[in-house]
């Protein structure tokens, strides 16, 4: 197992290198002269040249990449064009907000999705199953921002139960977390249901019943652990969707996280900040998938065979 983790860890290195290369190229891939864009369209040539010099755009590409990588390794993501502060300082106060939002939403998705999925599978073709699956269909058909706006209108304005915006108190957290977590919960619920239905028909479930185990033990101990195997993969993919979802949700609920910073930076053509955020999102994604692989392996002992 340890050997597997180490090997899997080493395998992420090329992925991370590829990500840095892509992020680095971002600035060169956008059409037009990046320096001109960042300086503003009406800026005089001298200002643009100064910008170019400041960003090091006059050097050959490989030199630029080398410089980018070496500062990256020292934890330096460059300087914001807009505020002239290091990108790291821009991101730091906000990163935990976004990670918290994402993790809480993920937890909500997993708990809601698993419970709904298992209940649906156990009561298959019943009324409860139909209701839950209809709700799930609704859940992942709804765009985040629309759900967010509806929740603000209903809960915050009409019922005046929870604050419509901001981040800090637990009351402020509830609506964004529900908004962000619903889609994932719906997908996990459907995945769990079909995986569970598959598992309940397996021979080893019959063996467990023949042993005289309680139905609850049969379902949760013998069934769920097997049913989780494909669900874990979905959770990994979900995390990516959640991260990108934060951009919209943070905007709708005026949460001062990375997502909002990204929108602001894009609007202000603050490329170093955009690069920094993309890089951090990508690293989180790679990390989450590493975790998913490890837990997949933990759940599914059989893949050791291959």
């Amino acid at each position: 197992m340890l050997q597997f983790i180490v090997r899997r860890f080493i395998q992420t290195i090329p992925v991370i290198l590829g990500v840095t290369l892509l992020v680095f190229s971002l600035i060169h891939l956008i059409p037009g002269d990046p320096a001109q864009i960042m300086a503003g369209e009406a800026a005089p040539e001298a200002t643009v040249e100064a910008m170019r010099e400041r960003l090091g755009l006059n050097d050959p590409l490989h030199v630029q990449y080398g410089r980018y990588m070496s500062s990256l390794l020292q934890g330096d993501l460059g300087q914001s064009v807009r505020t002239s502060r290091p990108v790291m300082d821009e991101i730091q106060p906000r990163i935990m907000i976004t990670i918290r939002l994402a993790i809480y939403s993920m937890i909500l998705s997993i708990i809601l999705g698993l419970v709904a999925g298992v209940v649906s599978a156990v009561r298959r073709y019943g009324l409860l199953d139909a209701t839950l699956m209809l709700a799930a269909l609704f859940g992942f058909s709804m765009p985040n921002f629309w759900l967010g706006l509806m929740l603000i209108k209903l809960v915050s304005i009409d019922l005046a139960l929870l604050p419509p915006s901001g981040w800090g108190t637990w009351q402020q957290g509830i609506l964004p977390i529900i908004t962000l977590g619903t889609g994932g919960a719906a997908i996990i619920a459907r995945m769990t249901r079909s995986s569970m239905l598959d598992v309940i028909n397996q021979d080893y479930i019959r063996t467990a019943r023949a042993k005289g185990l309680k139905e609850r033990v049969v379902i949760y101990k013998h069934g769920l652990k097997n049913a989780l195997i494909p669900v874990v993969t979905v959770v990994g993919i979900e995390m990516g969707m959640l991260l990108s979802g934060t951009v919209l949700v943070e905007t709708v609920f005026a949460v001062n996280g990375m997502g909002r910073l990204a929108i602001d930076a894009i609007r202000a053509r603050d490329f170093p900040v955009v690069q920094g955020i993309v890089l951090i999102f990508a690293l989180i994604f790679v990390g989450v998938n590493l975790l998913v692989d490890i837990s997949y392996r933990y759940l599914n002992k059989r893949i050791e065979l291959n």
Partner: peptide, 23 residues
């Protein structure tokens, strides 16, 4: 339930799939 696996037990045709793979 108290009888199953205690007073009367059963074994099945497919040994390959009758055991739970994750325990």
């Amino acid at each position: 339930r108290d009888i199953r696996g205690n007073n009367i037990s059963m074994i099945f045709q497919e040994p390959m799939t009758s055991l739970n793979p994750v325990y």
